[in-house]
Amino acid sequence: MIKNLALRLLGSLVLLIVVPTVTFFVQAVVPTNIGRSVLGINASETAVNAYNRQLGLDKPLIGRYVDWLAGAVHGDFGVSYNNSEPVQAVLAPRLGVSLSLIVGALLVFTVVGLLLGILSATGNKIVGTVVDAVSTIGVAVPNFWLAVLLVAVLAVQLNVLPATGYVDPSFSPTLWLASLVLPVIALAFSGITAVAKQTRDQMLIAIESPYTRTLRANGASEFSLVYKHALRNAAGPVVTVLGIIFVGALSGSVIVENIFVLPGLGSQALQSTLQKDLPVIQGIAVYFTIVVVIVNVLIDVATAILNPKVRAA
């Protein structure tokens, strides 16, 4: 187990270099004049060249990448092209917003998905049919369409939740939760259906397995069979699926944050892309990669705890 985790951590370190590197070169090769974009079309050529020189944009591409990588190793992601602020200062206030949204969605699709999956596996065929139908809808319905629908119904027509905006939890925990309800639902809906279906399928396999029939014949209670044995055996594949859904939620958060006007990393990513603000985009790529690495490590640990074969490897 320790060896496997060490290898995964090593691979994660490689990922931390590969993802920002790909982002850097993809953005950098796009033909654009940053100085002209920032200063405007009325700026003189002298001012534009001086601005580009100040930011080091007159250097060769490889030299700019080496400079950025050297700074990033020490936690310095450079300064924004648009306002000359350090990238960390631009992103720090937004990190908590994105984490609130993404972690909230993770909790919702995990808990609700597991409950639906368990009910589907242990209930009648009608419950299973409902879960299948909802799963199909969850896959087919894009989160941006669901977000607009939620705003139209719950925020505009019923006026029970705010349509847009974000409230800092230090100001009002209640308003903070209220501002996250609709975005979290929009981001978590497809994950709920995926977790529910995976939980149901894996539990049915475990419930119908020979060892479960043997335990039932030996007098084990149905509650013990379902929640102690079947659910534990189904948990390993479900945890793996949770990691995949979580990574997908990171990209979905970009759309959801922009629809609900949340000042998070996702909305900043879109804004910086439109402004061709490469240092900020690089910083966001690093932040998202770190989140993915942490989640993957936690999933590996959880899988090892749930599966003795992995733990013994």
Rank of each mutant, 00 (worst) to 15 (best):
I185M: 03
L265Y: 13
G219P: 07
I259A: 01
L225H: 11
Q268N: 11
V184W: 02
R213P: 02
D201S: 10
L182H: 00
G191D: 09
V254E: 06
K228M: 07
N218C: 05
A188G: 02
A269S: 14
V238M: 08
R213Y: 08
R232C: 10
V195D: 09
L215P: 15
S267I: 00
I207M: 15
L187D: 02
Q202E: 13
S224K: 13
G252Q: 05
F189A: 09
V184T: 12
I205A: 10
L250D: 01
I259Y: 04
F260G: 01
G236Q: 12
S251W: 00
P210S: 02
A217C: 08
A186D: 00
T240I: 05
I255V: 15
P263Q: 02
A206S: 14
V241I: 12
E222K: 15
T240F: 09
L187K: 04
I255C: 05
R216E: 14
G236R: 07
Y227D: 03
L250R: 04
V195S: 12
Q271P: 03
I205P: 01
G236E: 13
V239F: 11
S267G: 09
V195Q: 11
S253H: 09
V184K: 04
Y227I: 03
L250G: 02
A196K: 02
R200V: 05
P237S: 06
G243Q: 03
I205F: 15
G243M: 03
I255Q: 09
N218R: 12
L250T: 03
D201P: 09
L204F: 12
L187N: 05
V256I: 12
S209K: 10
S209H: 11
T199P: 06
L265R: 06
R216G: 13
S209M: 10
N258E: 10
L225A: 15
V241A: 14
F223V: 09
S251R: 07
E222N: 15
F246T: 02
A206W: 08
P210Q: 05
G266Q: 09
Q198P: 07
L270G: 00
L204G: 05
T193C: 08
R213S: 15
S253M: 05
V239A: 08
R216M: 13
A194R: 14
S253D: 05
G248S: 08
T214K: 14
A220P: 11
P183D: 02
K197P: 05
L242P: 00
R213C: 06
I185N: 00
D201Q: 09
V261A: 11
A230S: 14
T214S: 07
I244S: 07
E222D: 13
G266T: 01
L204I: 13
P237H: 06
S253A: 15
I244P: 06
S221R: 14
R216Q: 14
R232W: 12
G236Y: 08
G243I: 01
L250W: 07
L215W: 04
H229D: 00
N258M: 04
A186L: 00
I185C: 01
G252Y: 05
I255E: 01
A235V: 02
A230V: 07
V184N: 04
N218W: 14
A234W: 11
I244W: 15
Y211A: 10
A194Q: 11
T199W: 10
G252N: 04
G266D: 06
L204V: 07
V184G: 01
N218K: 11
I192T: 08
S267T: 04
V247T: 13
Q198I: 13
V195M: 15
